[in-house]
Amino acid sequence: MSSFIHAQKEIQFDCTSHQLTEGYEISILRFYVSNIQVKSTDGRWYSDQVDAHLIDKEVPSSWTISLVDCPKNLDIDSVVFVLGTDSLTNVSGILDGDLDPIKGMYWSWNSGYINVKVEGKEQATNTAFEYHLGGYLPPFSTAREIRLKTSTANSLRISVDVSRFLKNAKVEERLEVMIPGPEASKLSSHLSTCFSID
């Protein structure tokens, strides 16, 4: 049996490209990605072995996720993942790794993960905004499944258009969401449409 390590497929989350050109200054952009699956062009599925990843704009090493069982050169048809953490994760008590509450993405008063943090200001108007999106209890759950079909079959670079999300949020006239509820749920839906793949 051979024991060499195959090069693994990597997914890259690009957290920085859009907002720079759109007049927003993003101080915090952090979000959980979980239950990642990729489908090869010949129809096979590969699942990520890690429960959840915390992607942090400030931590470039967090932008890349390696899929252990998926060979690097495999042609990929589509990527499916959950933006946020599923309800089982939210009721599982104390977890470690990226799900450790000391990561600052956990509400202790209303047990559960803050799936997304977006904080910063709009430069032209100097208006600060702060969005902490989370909550797993229906009907205001905030985890969103995202399905992206690749165009180049080999590169898996996923971009997050935060400025588009912020424009949406502004239309809702909300500069601050800090608790689970209808606003967090609605904004999570908005944000889930702001992901795209190369």
């Binding site: 104390i94 509450p101 202790s108």
Partner: peptide
Amino acid sequence: HWDGGVNHLDVQAINPIEHFAEMDNTLE
């Protein structure tokens, strides 16, 4: 808690440790 906000005993103690009106500390 009175409002049932905490869904598992293992995460309860974070509240008194971090609450401003209780221990006002951090888990870290």
